[in-house]
Write a protein that binds this DNA or RNA. Structure first.
Lengths: 200, 200
DNA sequence: TCAATAAAATACCGATCGGTATATTTTAGT
DNA sequence: ACTAAAATATACCGATCGGTATTTTATTGA
């Protein structure tokens, strides 16, 4: 019964899967080691045998949560034909937070950005990189759309990319805080408007 | 030397002023009572003599931080003439987060909305009310602009109001997380575009 | 000025925090 | 099946957590 992946690797994965939602919901400071042991059924000794400290677990969980969203969205984008449709994927993916499967606790970029503002530089660096990568992917799609003649030449790629991200994340914040998924959908209508408004 | 306001009231105010920035920066769970005693120079006994518990201090601090922003913005809005100019106040007030004086730690609505998602229902209720009140004020300005003939009749007040809030809060999140105040300014350009685009 | 009262400091509570040294159990190669 | 190594559990560490009962100090009205 020799397995490809080691026991340690399987445990690491179990810890990440069982606790990613907790960190994303309660934040770094709000998540305790007993939260981790309760969720996994493991002991502190086991967790610290697989991770150096609590921060390393949080970092792995952030990567896990982020990848979950990114792979789902990138899949939809790869299936879309035009650059316009690729950008419009976001209005579908985030619709009522049900277009793709989200991590428990919502968007890890929003949560971690606000949570790790100070106190945790490693987490802050990672969320900054995630936002910049997202921005770059959007800019590439917008520039592609300009070159393909879908968008007018006077479209501002960076401003549009940043505005789409801000609308989505701000919309998520409003929807969660006011318990109104439909508020997010209204904001996504503006996302759609901004994308379609660049039509040449 | 008899004073109008009691000693207790002055101490309460001191505690709020000295700790409002800490709660707004480190979050509720991340702020400890020793943070409060360090910042105020008071002891735990004194703080608990003026507040029932840590949560009550956090609630008072949220109100304080929120009022600071709201009064400054409302002042600028009252000085503006047209409904268009009143709405455009936001692009000035939030420009590089320097148009008005912000609480230490940034926007309390964004911070508290994400921080108090779970674990703290009183804080969550308060931030929900703050967002809904903000939305209502924006809707009133937009409807006023429609009635005054500044905006076209097919403007959607709620969608526009929610989108402006989402852009501002999302823009703040991006700017802080990536250490780039200019990203917020680019997002505010879209805020301006959306407002001016409703011109009839 | 002087009590009555209010406010702040001291000293303490049990619980939990993140983390670790060590012992026990499980895995995996032979 | 046996053993060396890896993984997990146990038991513990000092520090800090939020909160409180009690004592000391400061305020305030007469």
């Amino acid at each position: 019964m020799k397995n490809e992946i080691s026991k340690a690797e399987r445990t690491r994965q179990l810890i990440i899967e069982k606790t990613a939602g907790i960190f994303n919901t309660k934040g770094y400071a709000g998540t305790s080691l007993s939260d981790l042991t309760d969720a996994t059924g493991l002991t502190k000794g086991s967790i610290y045998g697989n991770f150096e400290n609590k921060e390393e677990v949080a970092l792995a969980c952030f990567d896990y949560n982020l990848a979950k969203i990114n792979t789902a969205v990138q899949q939809l984008i790869s299936e879309a034909g035009s650059f316009t449709d690729k950008l419009l994927v976001y209005t579908r993916a985030y619709h009522s937070m049900t277009g793709i499967e989200f991590p428990e606790g919502g968007c890890p970029i929003l949560n971690t950005a606000v949570d790790a503002d100070d106190t945790n530089n490693l987490l802050k660096d990672r969320v900054a990189k995630a936002i910049l990568a997202w921005k770059k992917r959007l800019i590439d799609l917008i520039k592609g759309g300009i070159e393909a003649g879908e968008f007018t030449a006077d479209t501002h790629p960076e401003q549009l990319a940043l505005s789409l991200i801000a609308l989505i994340e701000g919309g998520i914040m409003i929807a969660k805080a006011t318990n109104s998924p439909n508020s997010l959908n209204k904001v996504l209508k503006t996302v759609e408007f901004l994308i379609r408004h660049q039509k040449s």
